[in-house]
């Protein structure tokens, strides 16, 4: 007849829970502490700029074509040397992403010929109505680097004629 063993088993159960109580909680106090995201995390989109402040996006709408959720809407317009947004002929005059439709697959990133659209590390997307879920271009584009002019820039004619000034090897 086992007499002590069952009691020891019960007591060991209690001991385990009590030991857990002395351990450090694993909770992350979210708004104050944030865990860094993984390098290939796909968060909110960012429209990139060149070092001189010109936008990389040329308004080709390949991202919109690649988008499986049909979340991207692009309208393009002509650049002039007096009001230049991006190198080459055209730029995106309207660029909207519907964050409720987006599935964060990253196909837009792959489709982009100028590496203009990149999925960033921002995951704090919250909105209180569907209209706010559509992010326009001014929310997506990153600010102009320090020391450069915001777009549209007035530039000397004949410099920015190619839409893809220097194509590096695709990364990632």
């Amino acid at each position: 007849m086992r007499v002590i063993e069952p009691l020891i088993e019960l007591a060991r159960g209690l001991g385990t829970t009590f030991k857990m109580m002395l351990e450090k909680p694993v909770t992350v106090q979210y708004p104050e502490q944030k865990k860094p995201v993984k390098p290939r995390f796909r968060g909110r989109h960012v429209l990139k700029r060149y070092d001189n402040g010109l936008e990389k996006c040329i308004g080709c709408a390949l991202c919109a074509a690649a988008c499986p959720a049909d979340a991207i809407f692009v309208e393009s317009a002509e650049n002039t040397d007096d009001a230049r947004f991006s190198p080459g002929d055209r730029y995106a005059s309207t660029y909207e992403i519907n964050m409720l439709r987006c599935i964060y697959c990253g196909f837009c990133e792959d489709a982009c010929p100028t590496e203009a659209i990149v999925l960033g590390d921002n995951y704090e997307l919250s909105f209180t109505n569907r209209r706010d879920a559509i992010y326009p271009k001014n929310m997506l584009i990153e600010p102009a680097p320090a020391g450069t002019l915001p777009t549209p820039q007035k530039v000397q004619p004949g410099i920015y004629t190619r839409s893809v000034p220097e194509m590096k090897d695709p990364q990632d």
Partner: peptide, 10 residues
């Protein structure tokens, strides 16, 4: 609070 501590929460 006590249950949370036992379950490694706050």
């Amino acid at each position: 609070r006590a249950l949370a501590r036992i379950q490694s929460r706050i």
